[in-house]
Nucleic acid binder design. Structure first.
Lengths: 205, 205
DNA sequence: GCGTGTGAAACAATTCACAGCG
DNA sequence: CGCTGTGAATTGTTTCACACGC
């Protein structure tokens, strides 16, 4: 159930453009061409233009794109111009590291609650939060209108926990567990899989 | 300079099949069909068969694939049947977390040295390693024949450090820094980008 | 002239559909 | 009969090439 007819692969490139534009804006750049933007992101100029053209006409012929304007436009499209409260499930070593991962804050993804199934972890403090039992999840998600969850539980639990999250109304899951999730089509998943990435490279060595 | 004419996208799915097969083997499963394997990984049965057919004929008609045999075959193809010593560059909070990330060990990627540019971090111990200055990199990479590096430095330094790594002979970089790397074609890069992944999902919410 | 926006063309990836074998 | 392996068909993605406006 895509929000629109725009290919997912185009959507997934938008954040890369946005990251570059944010950098250029910090550097005080005023305009950027599709060629420069593409070089930074690793795609062709034509693809940059095609991608952006799905959402409107942002550029000026002969000039290029106004950095600040395009950045703000992409932030609007991607909805990165607002806070996203997220919950973290899994308070193991990985969960702890994610609590302190600054880029989430920087991009307005705020971890507002941490859950774990292990009784030994429950009630333990992490920063200014306290690990809560999974039973509290439904209430927190509903009360705080959470749509995004970060999953950092052991692989064997990932599918079960994901289903609980879906039942609670979660719409997007960033999954650090080494397991594929089978989810209803209205729920999005993205995977962080360092080992898979390494294995995809060692083939060539 | 791809090692072969096999599409990169096929190579990047192989580790997903391998992960599933490893799980099935642990469960004591003897055979698996392309349909089951595909369901687990999130692709169609036809695609599983097509992917595997690039590398040989692993299945038996009417039966499916022998789990252990296919697992071992994929481990050979991906070269996950041997140790891969890797170096970590960047001893910040993220670097520390990666030192303790068990799946690397599990899949025989061993972090054998840690480097940082910050004098305050150099000589500090992490587990049984000691943070070394970047100047030591070339020697360690050569002596221990390292081909793979994990990059966990701030974004502004990522390109520079990557170039140093390439100059030292590194052939594959797992990049945690939020920056695209421009590298010679004989060097592979893979990106871990949680914020990019989140932004690619919030579009749909 | 330079760089965007965009149909048309080229290329790449996936699915179809079925022959062939256990 | 079930399931693989695989050419052919289909679908999806990227590049080309050029009209248009600054």
């Amino acid at each position: 159930m895509p929000r629109s007819g725009i290919p997912g692969i185009v959507i997934r490139r938008l954040p890369l453009y946005l990251r570059c534009l944010t950098l250029l804006a910090e550097r005080g750049e005023d305009v950027v061409s599709s060629g420069e933007l593409g070089a930074y992101v690793g795609v062709s100029p034509a693809l940059v233009r095609k991608d952006l053209s799905y959402f409107g006409e942002f550029g000026k012929q002969g000039l290029g794109y106004k950095v600040a304007f395009l950045r703000d436009s992409l932030m609007g499209i991607l909805q990165t111009d607002r806070d996203w409260p997220v919950i973290l499930v899994g308070a193991g070593p990985l969960g702890h590291a994610l609590m302190h991962y600054e880029p989430f804050q920087r991009w307005r993804y705020q971890i507002v609650a941490v859950f774990d199934r292990d009784p030994a972890k429950i009630s333990q403090p992490i920063d200014d939060l306290t690990v809560q039992p999974m039973e509290d999840m439904a209430l927190v998600i509903e009360k705080r209108r959470i749509m995004v969850a970060i999953l950092a539980v052991p692989a064997p639990h990932a599918q079960n926990v994901a289903e609980e999250l879906v039942a609670c109304g979660i719409r997007a899951i960033l999954n650090y567990a080494p397991a594929h999730l089978v989810l209803p089509s209205h729920v999005r998943a993205a995977y962080i899989a360092p080992v898979i990435s390494l294995q995809g490279m060692t083939y060539y060595l």
